[in-house]
Design a protein around this nucleic acid. Structure first.
Lengths: 346, 346
DNA sequence: GCACCATCAGAAACCGGTTTCAGACCGGCC
DNA sequence: GGCCGGTCTGAAACCGGTTTCTGATGGTGC
């Protein structure tokens, strides 16, 4: 009855765990091994010992130390999850999906942000390895495939937004090109022919694929590609705002804008609003992602939906499968067009 | 030259670490203790041994196992961070701030979501304890103060959004009442007298404080409080949408709406938009939080700013101080009004 | 030249679990 | 009654680090 938490801050060595497995063992009059076996159910133990131990466990509210267990077992029940920014609404959705699935499986997630920066990404991944994570999930990211494969030698890695074939690796690519095609077909289908495109940052593979889809759709419809209708953004609201302003000032005409992602579209909205232009009356706008906020933008945004949350869930499933030694058979969630109020027939 | 990663998945026991401290020691011809001392710089070691060991370390790219180190040291350089939902733009900002500060200090964050649910919150906190975190940061949350204090016996706890005095505990309260007062004074100052309020969920302390601020401001201005002008929401867009619709249909008149938070305001925006009402021409709207998206809403939202990111940074500083045994002297970031385009003088 | 002290390195114990290995005990069978 | 086999338990080793404790070495002072 007198277990006290070890004194804190009172000089002396670091605070240590008050009640350990050996304490329980002593109290129940058994050996440490027996307690361990009962907790994990690895070996049959007689009922009387079991109940004595269980009584001691509940009495002290004992729960084994995860670090010690991780050390002994060689696994930590932790997955390292690398996104680019924890406060980006896009990644946040994905993280949510990951979190949920991992929780169900008894795993915890160690989230870190790569800041769209190769160096930071590599630092995070190293940190994951050092902390002995059992697997890694990587949301997009700039880090080269070779580096990723190197990490995959240590621990299973699931990547989204790219294709990568290597041992202990699984990819959930995003069909950017098809998504862009769907968006453009929607616009073309409702009569638009002069369609501007606000791209992501120049060197980004997703951005290039979406641009390729934009061009392919124009080709399909026999509309000539006019580079003056392409402005580059930065995947964020601000880039969308600036790009749209530039387009408007440049004098090229367009009846619709396809934005590389929803956040860019929000920026475009604001630029149009400031010029007194109405969406969709004067300009139709299409986004890409279907962030939760897009249902509440004014007007609600027509966009290509890729369920990032589902993507996160599937990434979690895939990494768990890899850990279990199974080969995942999991597809990326499909892209589809969600028509709301930001586009209109002309 | 022949270190191989232990075979994975090939039956046999779990994959284990290929290169350990003892491997380095053997290679450099010294004892394990010496390697440890060199890595941590705890004791002076002769230069020649040091360089031999360092050579071996870089050759094998050795980095000590965090779990083992954590076990030996009794600390994990990990902070448990409990928010309510990782994909909420509000908490995401805070987590970002936490992440940044912790990273600077060499700590990692274990993020978990409490889902506005006492049971989940407690489960998360227990998980933190089991995993041996060195400290806990808790963003708002429904868990009772008594339970929080219980956890604080095991490990330092920093809470935001509430006041709590206990050992190994630090609070960063949010001045909800003052924030609400600022919002209301702004509206009243530009001529509004019939001001609706969309509250958060009924039993939430922050919601109650903001309501109190709303009432206090009315009192200051000698405006009678009319409960028909208060509608309850759920802190999310949907609640704002529904509450605003109810207000509009109820027939009570108002020239402005003060929303308990920005997300509620976004919902209000959409409800007004659907009714063909213009913000701010027909109705002025004020939010609370100043989420990043509020700069890009249409029109950009006037709101009370509380820098959640700063709050997160300060929470991180506070928990680090507690861990170091220092008593933090850190204030919550101030609330202030940010006037944009959603309010106008009448 | 010898005693003494400071400095540095290694052996061993430890952190808190898990697991191997060996032994105790029991029952069944010849 | 003795032998065999199966079941259950405990002692000890192990995971990969850190730290205490002890011993060796070299330098200094007298």
């Amino acid at each position: 009855m007198s277990e006290r938490i070890p004194e804190r801050g009172k000089r002396g060595p670091r605070p240590r765990r008050a009640v350990t497995l050996r304490v329980i063992a002593r109290e129940a009059g058994v050996s440490a091994s027996t307690v361990s076996r009962i907790i994990n159910g690895t070996v049959k133990v007689s009922d009387e010992l079991k109940s004595a131990v269980e009584a001691a466990i509940t009495k002290h509210d004992f729960r084994p130390d995860a670090a010690a267990r991780g050390l002994a077992l060689g696994r930590t029940l932790t997955i390292g999850v690398l996104s680019q920014a924890i406060d980006s609404p896009f990644y946040a959705e994905g993280l949510r999906g990951v979190e949920r699935r991992l929780l169900e499986a008894g795993y915890a997630a160690l989230f870190m942000s790569g800041n769209w920066n190769e160096v930071d990404e590599e630092r995070c991944l190293r940190e994951f390895i050092d902390r002995g994570v059992d697997g890694i999930i990587m949301f997009s990211g700039r880090l080269g495939d070779a580096a990723v494969k190197e990490f995959a030698k240590r621990v299973p890695v699931v990547v989204t937004g790219r294709s990568l074939r290597a041992a202990h690796t699984y990819s959930l690519p995003i069909d950017d090109r098809r998504g862009a095609l769907l968006a453009m077909r929607h616009l073309i289908g409702i009569g638009h022919r002069r369609i501007a495109f606000i791209a992501g940052s120049e060197n980004h593979p997703d951005a290039l694929e979406r641009l390729a889809g934009y061009q392919a759709a124009l080709g399909e419809a026999g509309i000539p590609f006019d580079p003056r209708r392409v402005a580059s953004g930065d995947w964020h609201e601000e880039g969308g705002l600036l790009a749209t302003s530039r387009l408007l000032e440049s004098g090229v005409d367009f009846t619709a804008i396809f934005c590389v992602n929803d956040q860019t579209a929000y920026g475009a909205y604001l630029a149009l609003f400031r010029k007194g232009l109405n969406v969709p009356k004067d300009v139709s706008v299409v986004g890409f992602d279907d962030l939760p906020a897009s249902s509440y933008s004014l007007p609600p945004l027509t966009c290509v939906r890729q369920s990032v949350r589902t993507l996160g869930e599937r990434a979690a499933e895939a990494v768990l499968a890899l850990i279990a030694g199974r080969r995942p058979r999991i597809d990326s969630p499909p892209v589809e067009i969600v028509v709301r109020d930001s586009t209109r027939r002309i």
